[in-house]
Design a protein around this nucleic acid. Structure first.
Lengths: 178, 178
DNA sequence: CCGCCATATGCAACTATGTGCATAATGGTT
DNA sequence: AACCATTATGCACATAGTTGCATATGGCGG
């Protein structure tokens, strides 16, 4: 599992509570990774049990108490070990492909509608990425600190992916018009 | 779940046994979808229990007996209903992005190695897709029957995806060299 | 004749992820 | 006073997917 390692990395970068990590996921959601607060709290618990994280309970006034998690030496080692292992390219299973595969059962018109719908969603995603770029990554890459370049490259992958998909959709629409 | 619907579509296209469907998955594996034989047999059972498929046991000589599954009217309807629902674009979570995100914890050199490794795998995948195209889809698309066009488009998406990734990798390698 | 391969099906256990619900403090809104 | 939003954490259950093991027939090569 990789969520485990992403949380490890987030906590390594900055000591955090489950709530804060969940918010980070919500903000970066889509162009990188997704996780619900349940998943986050559960993983934090598992990681703490395994000794890869430790936490201290912090009392607050005006807000409920919280648990601040920090990475341990063991956690750092586990992360580095995982990092050095080669990563399998993720399988990209798109249910829309099932619709292509089986379109003749239901009708090409309906497939066209499904494709148009998927296109609209993808266009919205790309627009959101472009807005993030315009807002946060408008300076030339050479001027960014290394950490920012790296995160920007993850956004660039998201954009490249959506653009490639949209070009494919153009081609598909052309074929379906015939 | 979508595997359910893919199996429904496969059985609708041609009455099949679990074994045959598993082989279809192995052959199409990667450019479309993946499933183990366990998953396939389990889904077939579930679908039959739900009345979306029915099966007849066929005795064979020289080979173990088999169950041949066919789609029911209910199954056809369930598939069509699913088809008409809009599909969420799948979240594309790539663990390599975690490595970009957290590279400074482990070192940029190691990230470069990981990127080179991922590139090699992606290049192999693209080469495999291109081989499939050369072998099975070498004629102009206009000359293909509709069903073949549609399946070819799923392969084209796989190729578009890998090419986009490789272009992104070029860009990333350039940035990491600085 | 022994082991391997292809055909054929399946259970059990585990991991991963998603959905729904529950709780609790405080401050602001209607 | 009732309700909602924000901060903060978590259990229980359901669904999806993976891994390991089990079983059975029969042909083929060594």
């Amino acid at each position: 599992m990789s969520l485990r390692h992403l949380i490890l990395a987030l906590v390594a970068a900055r000591e955090s509570t489950g709530y804060e990590i969940t918010k980070e996921f919500d903000e970066v959601a889509g162009f990188f990774w997704r996780a619900t607060h349940q998943q986050v709290y559960r993983e934090l618990g598992t990681l703490a049990d395994a000794g890869l994280l430790r936490f201290s309970e912090v009392e607050q006034h005006g807000k409920p108490d919280k648990k601040v998690y920090a990475i341990t030496a063991e956690g750092r080692k586990a992360f580095a070990d995982w990092f050095r292992e080669p990563t399998d390219p993720p399988r990209a299973a798109d249910p829309l492909m099932i619709k292509f595969f089986a379109a003749e059962l239901v009708g090409i018109d309906e497939l066209r509608r499904q494709l148009a719908n998927a296109r609209a969603r993808r266009e919205a995603i790309l627009a959101a990425y472009e807005a993030i770029q315009a807002q946060h990554y408008s300076e030339p890459m050479k001027e960014m600190p290394r950490w920012k370049q790296l995160i920007f490259m993850t956004l660039r992958l998201g954009m490249a992916r959506e653009r490639a998909w949209l070009e494919w959709a153009d081609e598909s629409e052309k074929v379906l018009r015939t």
